[in-house]
């Protein structure tokens, strides 16, 4: 059993309205040094598999089919260390 952290973000050329709104909000707070905020999603899940190749195959397949829309999004995942779970 492994724990997966999957991060999904909008592709850089796709307008991120949430990021835009947040950009304005941080400036309202007075932090002009922060910019280009991009908002993504993170999914955590357990996978009943230990072979890293097999995990890669399953996570990619599920990301392409359901978790992400690769027309507008990109995804990255990592297998979390047992200690951090």
């Amino acid at each position: 059993m492994k724990k997966i952290e999957l991060i999904i973000t909008l592709q850089t050329q796709v307008l991120d309205t949430q990021g835009e709104a947040l950009d304005r909000a941080v400036k309202d707070i007075g932090h002009d040094e922060i910019s280009n905020i991009r908002v993504g999603k993170v999914l955590y899940f357990d996978i009943d598999e230990t072979d890293t190749d097999k995990i890669d195959e399953i996570v990619k397949s599920m990301s392409e089919r359901l978790f992400a829309n690769t027309v507008i999004e990109t995804y990255n995942y990592k297998i979390l260390d047992e200690e951090t779970v």
Binding site: L10, V14, L15, T17, Q18, E20, A21, N69, V71, I72
Partner: peptide, 17 residues
């Protein structure tokens, strides 16, 4: 229809929020 690939492209948030 875009999600299941019957039509190309995608629908994203309105640019005016």
């Amino acid at each position: 229809l875009t999600e299941i690939g019957l039509l190309p492209g995608a629908l994203i948030h309105n640019t005016g929020h």
